[in-house]
Design a protein around this nucleic acid. Structure first.
Length: 429
RNA sequence: GCCGCCGUAGCUUAGCUGGUGGAGCGCUCGGCUGUUAACCGAGUGGUCGUCGGUUCGAAUCCGACCGGCGGCGCCA
């Protein structure tokens, strides 16, 4: 039994092979049936001629519809008329699982395909995205293992927010209220006191009614936290991580990028270091391109778009005013009105994929910031505790893995980067 | 939360200055021994999102409701 991709081989021409898969295209022309067979590796044309198979097998091929699963034996032929230049002249054709009329035909709306996602996953486009996605997860784990980070697991059920409170999904929990985690950051900070360098890959949940091409209510979050590391070193780690992923994709997924019509040269031309821009400078540039932006305002979609169109590689925006960032970011000792943080914006208009920075490690400074933000210290008691027992300088970040997939595959909407996207309306399939 | 837009056959849609709803794909049957999202012929399929209003007459005009899409904000 051979995989379809292996059949595109001159050494196999005129040899008999066995292969199996699903019917991707089906055409009949009198006494000859053309079937394009699909498996996880690719597609190949199978020609079923009445002269070369038994009547029973010919009738099987005649009755088998799109997406029926079949096993075929036949001779490999080189033929210009076949898509890809090779085909199998069938000698035996057995249907394993007959397919009823497949609901997905040539005209398809986004919404219909989302309703049919459990079947649309079989499409060549989704298969390509899923292969890219698999490589990205693989390369992220590979990177952190090589860097000496430990993989840890934080709880998904939590009792309170990391930041703010409006974005949490509430779930009943044996008579109490629990929430689905929106970030594992605070838990990761607890691990660094023993493991020092840690990361986790897990879903995060945000109950925002976002209606944009870059938001999901459930997304895969890579978060890392490291003791004794400052903001600059954390950015260096992140840019190496992104490059490691890109290199893996260029090595393993060229075929998929081509199928998705991704401009590969834009990935090939990436190099270190990535750009770095002060928040204050972003505001200036924004004014140059006609954006009405005051210092102290958070960067919106228009600003991100302007910045990421301007550069052909990812850009770190650093040193935001402390007022627009969560309380745990460490103010810059040189200029306490800004924090030692960074957002990483992907190029080509994709925007923010990472948010991170240095955390406040001094107990009193942390208590002061909690007070300034009118938060209740009791809600953060165990987090504050970490500053009481041998605190250390440390930094961390969170990466939206689905957004990374979205950018690398150059997809229009994040829902194409995820097999079963979740948003405010969609829960099925 | 805010601002736009859309619901017509299984799917994609035309019809929207009111006068008995068309097409392509799919599906069924037939034809074709080299098709490439094949082609040719015949057939099949619609309470025009729901409810109410205007009118002699509503897919079309008005209102409410339901469902959905796009963008902003929020962020990864």
């Amino acid at each position: 039994m051979q995989k379809i991709k292996e059949l595109f081989n001159d050494d196999l021409v005129e040899k008999e092979v066995d292969t199996r898969g699903w019917i991707y295209r089906w055409r009949e022309s009198g006494k000859i049936i053309f079937i394009v067979l699909r498996d996880s590796t690719g597609i190949i044309q199978v020609t079923v001629s009445r002269d070369n198979v038994s009547e029973e097998d010919f009738n099987s091929a005649k009755s088998a519809g799109i997406e029926s699963s079949v096993i075929v034996s036949g001779i490999v032929k080189k033929d210009e008329r076949a898509p890809g230049g090779f085909e199998i002249l069938a000698k035996k054709f057995k249907v394993i699982g007959l397919s009823q009329n497949f609901p997905i035909t040539k005209d398809k709306s986004d919404e219909f395909l989302l309703d049919m996602r459990h079947l649309w996953l079989r499409s060549r486009e989704m298969t390509a995205v899923l292969k890219i996605r698999s490589t990205i997860f693989d390369m992220l784990h590979d990177f952190f293992r090589k860097e000496g980070y430990y993989e840890v697991q934080a709880p998904m059920f939590v009792s309170s927010a990391v930041e703010g409170g409006s974005t949490l999904f509430e779930v009943p929990y044996f008579g109490r209220k629990a929430y689905l985690t929106q970030s594992s950051q605070f838990y990761l900070e607890t691990f660094i006191f023993s493991l020092e360098n840690v990361y986790t890959v897990a879903p995060s949940f945000r109950a925002e009614k976002s209606r944009t091409r870059r938001h999901l209510t459930e997304f895969w979050h890579l978060e890392a936290e490291a003791a004794w590391i400052g903001n600059d070193d954390m950015m260096k780690l992140e840019e190496r991580m992104i490059m490691h992923v890109i290199e893996g994709i260029l090595e393993k997924n060229r075929e998929e990028l081509i199928l998705l019509k991704r401009d590969i040269s834009k990935l090939e031309s990436l190099s270190l270091p990535f750009n770095r821009m002060e928040y204050a400078d972003v505001i200036k540039i924004g004014k140059d391109v006609g954006l009405d932006l005051e210092y102290g305002a958070d960067l919106g979609a228009d600003e991100e778009y302007a910045i990421t169109q301007k550069f052909d590689k990812p850009t770190f925006v650093i040193h935001f005013p402390k007022e627009i960032k969560p309380f745990y970011h460490r103010p810059d000792p040189e200029n306490p009105s800004v924090v030692l943080n960074h957002d990483l914006l992907a190029p080509e208009g994709y925007g923010e994929i990472i948010g991170g920075g240095e955390r406040i490690y001094d107990l009193n400074e942390l208590l002061q910031r909690i007070k300034e933000e009118n938060l209740n210290p009791e809600d953060y008691s165990w987090y504050i505790d970490l500053r009481r027992y041998g605190t250390v300088p440390h930094s961390g970040f969170g990466l939206g893995i689905d957004r990374l997939v979205w950018w690398i595959a150059a997809l229009d909407h994040i829902k194409y980067a995820v097999p079963y996207p979740r948003n405010v309306r969609r829960l099925v399939p």
